[in-house]
Structures are given as structure tokens and as C-alpha cells.
Design a protein around this nucleic acid. Structure first.
Lengths: 158, 158
DNA sequence: CCGGATCCGTTTCGATACTG
DNA sequence: CAGTATCGAAACGGATCCGG
């Protein structure tokens, strides 16, 4: 058995230690749900990650097989980040984190359509998201994010 | 709108900031899945939380409505911690964290029955866990944990 | 014993300035 | 645009001490 540097063998703990901190999940969220792809776009997210933390997390996420880094074909100055296999499998977890947050924040000011989907049609929603990600698998600008594809505003975010 | 001290209004970020760090979730896991209830039991979990961190997290979790602290009737020296409403609602999230960890660790050395339940019968599993927690709602020693009730070993843990 | 509180060295994080 | 470098602040871990 290869050493992971992780204490304990509980899968929950494995997941928590692998993800490391909240910034990792927020970066994956930006790619998966908002269609963000560049350093600058991540930096402008409302949570306000710092440049040093972002650079550090991007490196770790790439090493972990969560994301893929590739230089843009249309603009050679830009580095484009897309989901790798492991980041892809985080989608259901992100939905669950979202569901709990909405539930505990109160559902009143949230989009009912999204909440409905999340609670009664969870598996279908995951499938729809995966299909959208598959369609937008290219690294070019212009394809729509999952949020836009669904036609519903998950939560307000610039 | 009341101030939460939390940056950003994305539910995913709300959840991550509310939970704070991995110890919060590991304590809730200990209560929900392993039937642990005392300071000493949490302290002896394989991940090795320190006394200062445990005391701090227990206080925060209690304030957040995740857990309830109550002195034992049978042994007045002991403080008994059980799930409060918000901790209760974390069960699906804990299952999702567990699922991802199992998936990424490889399924080979895991209990197939549990994996099967988790992947194909998610909602029923959540219900079963809730029923078990409801039955074991008393603060007395002796009732079985969810792990024992299910009759399957989720993961090895002393 | 059980359930903490306190102290302190180390690590991590966040803010900002700077560079190719 | 996409990162490094630096430095102070905060969080964390380990050990020890304390009250019932």
C-alpha cells in the first residue's frame, strides 16, 4: 500500500485531507459551474482568493489530477484550466455542499427551480451537468457554463 | 439580512466557511456513524485531534446548533454530546464525502455491500441512518451505532 | 480518572509589492 | 496576464497543568 501522508483510513477523512482547504473546492466550483478557466477569472471570484494561495492551489490541484493546465491556442498569453478526471467526480459533492448551504441559509431567497431539481431529481441533475461539461470540453472561450445551460440562476455571482 | 461574517453568498462557500475545518465534520461523523458521545471518545479517534482543538470545536459546534451538550444521568462526571438539528442534516453530506473518498481510494478493499448501498440506493440509506439515529436518541450508553445497525463495516476504525 | 484550559513553537494563511 | 517573494497575523499541534 502506497503512503499518502494521510492519517487514518476513514474515507471521509481521506476526502477532507485530500481537498486540503476550501479554496480547492471553490476553484473546482468556478470551473464546473461558472465556466471560469483562467487565473484572472479565479482571482476575481467574490470570495477573494489571494494570488499566492491561488497559485499554490492550482499547482496542487493539477498534481492531484483534479484540473488540467494548458496554454490557450487563441491567446498564447493565457493559461487555460479545465477539469481533469478527479475534479469531474467532485460534482456530486459540490451539489451536496450547495444543498446544505441553501437549506441552512433558508430557501426563501433562492431559486425554487434549482432547489426543486436538487431535492427531487438529484441524479438527473448530475447527469445534466456532466453532459454540459462534456459538450464544453474544449478549452476555447464562448461555450456556456452549466449555470447558463440550466437556464436558472443557482446563486448570484458576478 | 443578518450578517454572518461570511464572505460571498454562494451556498457552497457558506457551507465551507460554516464548517470551518475538517475536525468539525469528523466530530459529527463520530457521533452520527460511530455512536461516540464523550470528549474522551472523540479524543481517541484515529485521526488524533488535540485537546485544545477538540474543546474549541465542541464549543463552536454547540453554538452553531450542530450538537447538544448534556451531563450524563448515570455518570455525573461525563458530558454527553448528541446531534442537534443542524448536525443531523449533515448526514447526506458525510455520505457524499465518504463516497468520494472510497471512489478515489479504489473500491477493491472496501465493503461491497456498503458501496452498493451508497451508489444505487442513496435515499434509502439516508432514511435508514435517520431511523437509526432517531431510535438511539437517548443519551445513555448501550444503543448501537449506525455502523453496527447496518450490519456492515463502513471502514475499519477502532 | 474525566473534561477541559493554558502556554508556546511551528505551520499555514492573507495582504501586498514586485517580476517575466 | 500569470504568477513570485516577503512578511505579519492567525490557526494549528503538542505538551502540560488544573479543577471536580
Amino acid at each position: 500500500m502506497k503512503s499518502t501522508g494521510i492519517t487514518g483510513n476513514c474515507p471521509i477523512n481521506f476526502t477532507l485531507e485530500t481537498l486540503g482547504n476550501r479554496w480547492a473546492l471553490l476553484i473546482v466550483r468556478d470551473i464546473a459551474f461558472y465556466g471560469k478557466r483562467t487565473y484572472g477569472e479565479f482571482l476575481r471570484s467574490e470570495e477573494g482568493i489571494t494570488t499566492s494561495m491561488l497559485a499554490d492551489r492550482l499547482l496542487v490541484l493539477e498534481k492531484q489530477g483534479m484540473i488540467i493546465k494548458k496554454r490557450s491556442n487563441t491567446d498564447r498569453r493565457k493559461e487555460i484550466y479545465t477539469l481533469d478526471r478527479r475534479g469531474y467526480t467532485l460534482v456530486p459533492l459540490l451539489l451536496e455542499l450547495s444543498r446544505w448551504g441553501m437549506y441552512e441559509n433558508g430557501l426563501a431567497d433562492l431559486n425554487p427551480a434549482w432547489v426543486e431539481q436538487l431535492q427531487t431529481n438529484h441524479d438527473a441533475l448530475v447527469q445534466l451537468i456532466y453532459e454540459t461539461l462534456d459538450e464544453g470540453g474544449s478549452v476555447f472561450r464562448g461555450e456556456r457554463s452549466v449555470v447558463e445551460k440550466l437556464g436558472i440562476q443557482i446563486y448570484s455571482n458576478k
